[in-house]
Simulated assay, not measured.
Amino acid sequence: MSNSLYRFGQLLCRCFFRLFFRVQILGKENIPASGGVLLCCNHIHNFDPPLLGAFIKRQTRYMAKAELFEVPILKTLITKVGAFPIRRGMSDRQALRTGLKLLKDGEVIGIFPEGTRSKTGELGEGLAGVGFFALRSDAAVVPCAITGSYKPFSTVKLIYGKPLDLTSFKESRASAEEVTKKIMAGIQNLLNEYKN
């Protein structure tokens, strides 16, 4: 799915980030050009979702908290740019089904496995939903890391890592929790390597 509103939003986001921060984007070549992709990123700020998708060619879809879809104008806008709702704090089967269908249809989904922003900047525990998506789809799982503080004119780095090889986990029928731990370790490795 790609539309002019999303592309316009991307352009605005790129201008914003380049104007107010020294943005460094690394590893874009690690994102497959086609097929389902799961971008799995740490979460330190409200700017993380637009940053994650602003500088790549493919459209990124996001799960957004259901409360945002209760605001009429906002609901229209975020729906048009490809977001879909998830009820936090519970198992939302509809959101899981929607995400799985998007991945099987070859879409890119940006996901923040911690489920909420980190108050300390340290990576927290991941929720099992990301492992579910990884196990139940053939999507490439790309760990991502954002470092920096989003202070005006400071350096913010976004790193797209190499897709994780989850073959052994699928063959051994590992649990979603085990796969989530593997994904979180991939994110942590990037954070360790590219600390500002």
Rank of each mutant, 00 (worst) to 15 (best):
M1D: 12
S4N: 07
R7L: 15
Q10C: 14
L11K: 12
L12I: 15
R18N: 15
R18T: 13
F20T: 05
R22E: 09
V23D: 01
Q24M: 05
I25W: 04
L26E: 12
L26F: 06
K28L: 10
N30F: 01
G35V: 10
N42W: 04
N42D: 09
F47I: 07
F55D: 13
Q59S: 13
V71D: 02
K75R: 14
K80N: 13
A83I: 01
P85T: 11
A95S: 14
A95L: 03
L96E: 01
T98I: 14
L103K: 10
K104Y: 01
I111V: 15
I111W: 00
P113E: 00
G124H: 12
A134F: 05
A139F: 01
A140Y: 04
A140P: 02
V141L: 03
V141D: 03
A145W: 02
T147K: 02
T147L: 04
T147A: 10
G148M: 03
P152K: 12
P152G: 11
F153Y: 09
S154L: 05
V156Q: 06
K157P: 12
I159S: 12
R173P: 00
R173D: 13
A176V: 08
E178A: 15
V179A: 08
T180Q: 07
I183T: 07
I187T: 11
N189L: 13
L191S: 13
L191Q: 10
N192T: 14
